[in-house]
């Protein structure tokens, strides 16, 4: 063992402590994930509405996302990409695949097969999936930070 070991050990322990502290702060407001879910689900559900409503929803969706980012930054004092390295990337990719699959299926069922209500049900599924995956993502992020992952 090198004679620098006590210093090195202390230094690494301090790094872990700081990352643990950061992990505890990385909690979005309680309403954050449900609102994100509603916005994402709404994007699909609104496709059942007339063209004017579909177009009107887009700026609402964009403003909603901007406000969510602001709220997250204000609450946690940080911003994290959903696709950052670590467990979080897998959760984000899984969510994206689930959303795209649900959206594709719902659009196909409603517009091609003629199943009425498919877009609304699809929107509901996307909303719930986004909310749950958001919470799972956050837990994965905290675990990554605690364990020093994603470096």
């Amino acid at each position: 063992m090198s004679k620098l070991d006590p210093d090195t050990t202390r230094m690494l322990a301090e790094v872990e402590a700081a990352r643990g502290d950061l992990a505890r702060r990385a909690r979005a407001p309680l309403w954050y994930h449900p609102v994100l879910g509603l916005l994402a689900g709404g994007l699909l559900a609104v496709q059942a509405a007339p063209l004017a409503a579909r177009i009107a929803y887009l700026p609402l969706f964009a403003v909603g996302l901007i406000l969510l980012v602001r709220a997250y930054r204000r609450k946690t004092g940080m911003w994290v990409s959903g696709f950052r390295a670590g467990r979080t990337r897998w959760v984000a990719v899984a969510l994206l695949v689930a959303i795209w699959t649900t959206m594709g299926m719902a659009l196909w069922l409603e517009w091609q097969v003629g199943v009425r209500g498919a877009l609304l049900v699809g929107g509901l599924i996307v909303a719930v999936a986004t909310t749950i995956q958001g919470l799972v993502w956050e837990a994965a992020f905290r675990r990554d930070l605690d364990e020093g992952g994603g470096l």
Binding site: R10, M11, E14, V15, A18, R19, D21, L22, R25, R73, T76, G77, M78, W79, V80, S81, R84, D144, L145, G148, G150, L151
Partner: peptide, 26 residues
């Protein structure tokens, strides 16, 4: 330096952090 190492390790885990949060953690 210990504080700078802590800073870098925290910053490596996120996109960005604000000054006040970093100051509180450190």
């Amino acid at each position: 330096a210990p504080n700078r190492l802590q800073m870098c390790c925290m910053l490596a885990g996120v996109d960005d952090i604000d000054f006040a949060t970093l100051r509180e953690v450190l």
